[in-house]
Design a protein around this nucleic acid. Sequence first.
DNA 1: AACCCAATGTAGGCAGCGCCAACAATGCTG
DNA 2: CAGCATTGTTGGCGCTGCCTACATTGGGTT
Lengths: 198, 198
Amino acid sequence: MGMPQRPYHHGDLRAALLEGAERTLRDRGVAALSLRELARETGVSHAAPGRHFKDKQALLDALTLAGYERLAQTLAAADDPALPIEPRLTALARAYLGFAIENAELLELMFARKHDPEASARLTDAVDRSVGSFERLIADAQRRGEIVEGDVEQITLVAAASLHGLASFSASGMLTREEAYAGVAGHVHHLLCGLKPR
Amino acid sequence: MGMPQRPYHHGDLRAALLEGAERTLRDRGVAALSLRELARETGVSHAAPGRHFKDKQALLDALTLAGYERLAQTLAAADDPALPIEPRLTALARAYLGFAIENAELLELMFARKHDPEASARLTDAVDRSVGSFERLIADAQRRGEIVEGDVEQITLVAAASLHGLASFSASGMLTREEAYAGVAGHVHHLLCGLKPR
DNA sequence: AACCCAATGTAGGCAGCGCCAACAATGCTG
DNA sequence: CAGCATTGTTGGCGCTGCCTACATTGGGTT
């Protein structure tokens, strides 16, 4: 009879689903994410999401991809190549830690090892752009003699592992957010100077 | 009519369920773990597990606890206090990395932040015993002057974070098992000596 | 301008899931 | 040996992901 509440076609259902999914992920965790509930919240039928994501896993893969793209952007924005190594790395570490804390559930998804191989082409690309910020920093610092010589990839791995470990501890609740933030500078210092006495 | 295939009471259903659950977890991941299927495999009715675990989460919590106990034992066995700091820490790192690779799904569960607060008393204890191996190592090394002075907990955190990051990268497939093992010694060396030139 | 068709939505159904309540067998304890 | 807490079974509820069949729509072709 009256005006249709909503037009038959949504307009941009895919984006709306991703947005809703990310909200639920952040608020209530990946276990609470249901395609049917998501469809209900978005105001479409329970089968509509299937037109845009063949699978629940496909939705999770899309969230993961978006997560890496946001991470890469966050890191790139936080990197100031003009700074000396220690403050520069500290800033980058703080940015990564912030992302990890604000997106703990998403990060867990990003580190899960069960993504559809079909999605992994663009995914690998997004991962590389995230790691790229660290790799650039290491390569620059080596050129300036601020960092020991050696294979860039391995040294990047050491630095990234150290920061990811810290982030992982924070995200999993072993450290409070405040403890983690307060410890970043000291953490980076120990990473750069080592644990042996100098 | 005939002999009952199995006696009405299982004998030690709880242990059998945990064992089966751990196998499924290792083989097919936490997402594939279903109480009903587990009951089927164990040869009991679909409601029997409920007598021993009030919840699916309670089962996961029990797996987590067992995981930390096994980890603590693995680390304690791998620690040789007689060794100098670098080989000692390398051995411990190798043990942790091995655990992480062999029990990737379990480790993910152990680092999830959604455990029932009721279970967290014994859990905290088991976590402490795992971290204890690293803390002892750091404290010993400080006493011998092999490690820079400073708050033991923070330095332990730096070391543990570095190794956990490496383990996490391996477990999530960003590094192959071989790459990870091959890089352990170098990783520990960089951790101890720092990234700045000396 | 009319038509067709691919894209995108809906409706309904299926098997499996976690959880719950009611009932049955068991074996420990008096 | 009687009673009862423990531990098992059966059945059922509402939810889920996924599938198939059908409905609506708007853009591209003629």
